[in-house]
Computed example of a mutant assay.
Amino acid sequence: MQNFYRTSSKDIRVLRFVYKVKILKGAEEDILPDGTMDYPDYILKKLDIVIDSVHSRFKSSKKEMTERIITALSSKHLDILGHPTARLIRKREGYQADFDEIFETAEDKSKNTGKSTASPSV
């Protein structure tokens, strides 16, 4: 992981210089069942943008999923909550969670940190 990060960071610096465009270093990471992230802090703090998403255990209870996501929202590295329902149209129903509580938590984080975390359009 560290070697990949170093290589892609170097490539991004070169592209930024050559083309004079803004290219962000970012990653989508998994919100683990306990609400923690799958990338270590030393990687996350070097990124410009971090998207956190649930990729497993979609059949967790509504309470468990809500707690999982709210725990993830407390991460200082999180910028965007990715595909908040995990629904795949005509293929998979979304997981159950208290989205009012989740988006209220995201809104509070935005007010307290200036980081906009999620859009309430599910």
Rank of each mutant, 00 (worst) to 15 (best):
Q2W: 08
F4Q: 08
R6M: 14
R6L: 14
R6G: 14
T7D: 14
I12K: 08
R13Y: 09
V14H: 05
V14M: 04
L15A: 15
L15Y: 14
R16F: 06
F17V: 08
V18M: 14
Y19Q: 10
Y19H: 12
K20W: 00
K22G: 06
L24K: 13
L24I: 10
G26A: 12
A27C: 14
I31T: 03
I31E: 00
L32V: 10
P33H: 11
G35Q: 06
T36N: 12
Y39K: 09
P40S: 12
I43D: 03
K45Q: 14
I49D: 09
I51S: 08
S53L: 07
V54W: 00
H55E: 04
R57K: 11
R57C: 02
K59D: 12
S60D: 11
K62A: 10
K63W: 07
E64V: 03
E64G: 00
M65D: 04
T66S: 04
E67R: 07
I69N: 01
I69M: 02
I70A: 00
T71C: 07
S74C: 04
K76D: 13
I80H: 00
H83F: 01
T85R: 02
A86H: 02
R87N: 00
R87E: 13
R87L: 05
K91H: 12
E93C: 02
G94F: 02
G94C: 05
Y95A: 03
Y95L: 13
A97G: 05
D98W: 03
D98P: 04
D100T: 10
D100K: 13
E104A: 12
T105P: 00
A106F: 01
K109E: 06
K109L: 10
K109P: 01
K111G: 05
K111Y: 10
K111S: 11
N112Q: 14
S116D: 12
S116T: 11
S119E: 10
P120G: 09
